[in-house]
Amino acid sequence: MILILRALGVGDLAVAAPALRGLRAAFPGETLSLAAPAWLAPLVDAIGGIDRIVPAHELEPLADAPVNPQIAVNLHGSGPESHRRLLELEPGKLWAFANRAAGHHDGPGWLDEEHEVFRWCRFARYYGVRCAIDDLDLKRPSVDVPQGMTIIHPGAKSSARRWPPERYASVARRLRSAGHRVLITGSASEQDLCVRVSEEAGLGPDAVPRTGLTELLGLVAAARLVISGDTGIAHLATGYRTPSVTLFGPVSPARWGPPPDRQWHRAIWHGTRSERGDLPGPVHPALLAIEADEVLDAGNQVLHAAASK
């Protein structure tokens, strides 16, 4: 049995798809278990190749994980905490980035400024696992959702990464006037924000659907356009090749942006250096530098590129 730790969020799991598929191909006869939040099961299915989900949350002890896995693979981070969570299970081998504090001297070195997809493919290749950085496509779920919607997703994990709601509302209002059918999406904790954006945009009550992850996957897969901040739904748009515009603030798109060779995905960033993405406090200045006109122009560009591909 191979146990893989990636107990993070939607975007984190989506960008790990190439590494996860590489591990599946490298161990075709082994049970592949993924330690991740249970609510991510629809996305795990969309990636494919995982036999079992072990419920896990970030760096908490892996209480439900089987002990003595043949190989424990740390796709979570650089350590030492994540290394220790896996070492507690007494695996036959630990595949992880080198970390002296965890007593793990094997493995590649961690590079802070590396793109997250490249990072985990480089990691996999170090251990002899073939990994294709462009293997990001996701399987569409079997779910009945409206087709061809334009999705605006105003939320993000930290306040520093949330573009002002009045600017999202301006974009939504103008897109609707241009003939787009607009939905405002967000997590359960972001419903008040979504309602505010919808009301300021003059949209009706049906513009804020209550969706689980399966429905969100379906909506993105069938969407005309996705506009969001640097958060999980942007990576779903990449996985479904849905035209998208992603607004970056503290973190550079060189670390988390869409593939640069796909003209139907556009990252907007006015920063000069990459910082932590979980910064508390006000909206990051790089994000505030983005105006509604720029987002609308980018949206028109990616739709044109998608029509031409």
Score class of each variant (00 low, 15 high):
Ser244Leu: 04
Ala222Leu: 00
Leu213Phe: 03
Val171Tyr: 11
Pro55Gly: 13
Ala298Glu: 02
Ile50Ser: 12
Leu94Ala: 09
Arg161Ser: 14
Arg21Ser: 12
Gly204Glu: 00
Tyr127Ser: 04
Leu8Ile: 09
Ser252Thr: 06
Asn74Leu: 08
Ile53Gly: 07
Pro91Thr: 12
Leu8Gly: 00
Ser82Met: 14
Pro141Val: 03
Val251Met: 05
Ser198Glu: 02
Thr238Leu: 03
His284Ile: 01
Ile290Asn: 02
Leu287Asn: 01
Asp134Met: 14
Leu247Thr: 01
Pro258Arg: 01
Asp278Met: 04
Gly249Ser: 03
Pro285Val: 04
Gln191Thr: 15
Trp110His: 15
Leu62Asn: 14
Ala169Asp: 02
Gly22His: 09
Cys194Thr: 06
Ile290His: 06
His270Phe: 05
Pro285Gln: 05
His304Trp: 09
His284Pro: 03
Ile227Ala: 01
Arg24Ala: 12
Ala169Leu: 02
Glu81Arg: 15
Ser308Glu: 11
Gly49Tyr: 10
Ala101Tyr: 13
Glu81Ile: 06
Lys93Asp: 10
Asp64Phe: 12
Leu87Met: 15
Pro253Tyr: 04
Trp256Leu: 09
Leu32Tyr: 00
Val54Trp: 06
Arg162Gly: 05
Leu279Asp: 00
Pro250Thr: 04
Arg255Met: 05
Ala98Trp: 08
Leu59Ser: 08
Pro18Ser: 13
Arg210Pro: 03
Glu81Asp: 15
Leu288Ala: 06
Val15Ile: 15
Asp137Asn: 11
Gly204Val: 01
Ala14Lys: 07
Pro253Val: 03
Gly179Met: 11
Gly92Phe: 14
Leu183Gln: 11
Asn99Thr: 11
Cys194Met: 06
Pro253Asp: 03
Trp269Phe: 00
Ser252Met: 01
Gly202Leu: 02
Pro108Asn: 11
Gly179Arg: 09
Gly11Val: 07
Ala292Gln: 09
Leu5Gly: 10
Leu75Asn: 14
Leu296Asp: 10
Gly212Ala: 04
Ala41Arg: 15
Arg24Cys: 09
Leu94Val: 13
Glu60Arg: 10
Glu166Ser: 13
Leu193Ser: 00
Gly186Leu: 05
Cys121Asn: 13
Leu219Ala: 06
Tyr126Asp: 07
Gly271Leu: 01
Val145Pro: 02
Leu203Met: 02
His57Phe: 14
Phe123Ile: 10
Phe97Met: 14
Pro154Ile: 13
Gly277Ala: 02
Arg161Thr: 07
Gly92Trp: 14
Pro146Asn: 05
Ala14Thr: 14
Pro108Leu: 11
Gly9Pro: 01
Tyr240Leu: 01
Ala14Asn: 11
Ala38Cys: 03
Leu40Val: 09
Leu34Ala: 12
Ala17Asp: 13
Leu111Arg: 15
Gly218Trp: 04
Glu88Ser: 15
Pro282Ile: 11
Leu303Phe: 07
Ala222Val: 00
Ala102Arg: 14
Gly212Phe: 01
Leu3Asp: 06
Leu279Cys: 05
Leu296Asn: 06
Leu3Ile: 07
Ala36Ser: 14
Trp110Pro: 14
Leu43Asp: 15
Pro154Cys: 05
Gly49Glu: 12
Gly103Lys: 08
Gln147Met: 10
Gly103Ala: 15
Ser158Glu: 01
Ile184Asp: 06
Val208Met: 07
Ala41His: 12
